[in-house]
């Protein structure tokens, strides 16, 4: 994992369909990164609101991910599509307030499901943009 990213505060929102054992799988990472990582399982990724992202940044997150299920496999049919629209909206808001919109990242994972959330997170953090601490978390 990129060493600089280990120091960052990361918030990960994800659809519960991704990993039925998410609560036990994510503990390895929670233990490793301590309070620096926060997982927020959602009943459906379409449940997300731009406000969730803004709150995450406000609470000190440097990187915020939203992981949705693969295209066409949303149980509510359009949840992941709507999640994409909301993330675009939130990125605009973030840009407007002077933050870097690239810190908010949408991941549409590829089939098949399920995926282990801990492995997925490692992969994400490995390839995460090296951004350093966000303006808000430095305040």
């Amino acid at each position: 994992m990129n060493k600089e990213n280990l120091e960052l505060n990361v918030a990960i929102f994800f659809c519960q369909q991704l990993d039925p054992d998410q609560d036990s799988n994510r503990r390895v990472i929670e233990k490793e990164l301590g309070p620096g990582i926060k997982f927020f399982p959602l009943p459906c990724s379409g449940r997300i609101e731009p406000l969730h992202f803004l709150h995450a940044f406000e609470s000190g997150a440097d990187l915020v991910y939203l992981i949705t299920c693969p295209v066409k496999s949303c149980r509510y049919q359009q949840g992941n599509v709507r999640a994409g629209k909301r993330i675009a909206f939130a990125q605009n808001l973030i840009r407007e307030i002077g933050l870097d919109p690239e810190r908010l990242i949408l991941i549409n994972i590829d089939p098949p499901l399920p995926k282990r959330i801990d492995l997925l997170t490692r992969e994400l953090l490995e390839g995460a943009p090296v951004k350093g601490h966000s303006l808000l978390s430095r305040l």
Partner: peptide, 10 residues
């Protein structure tokens, strides 16, 4: 819609 809350299940 209503869905099972993943936090509740856990």
């Amino acid at each position: 819609h209503k869905a099972l809350n993943p936090d509740y299940k856990n």
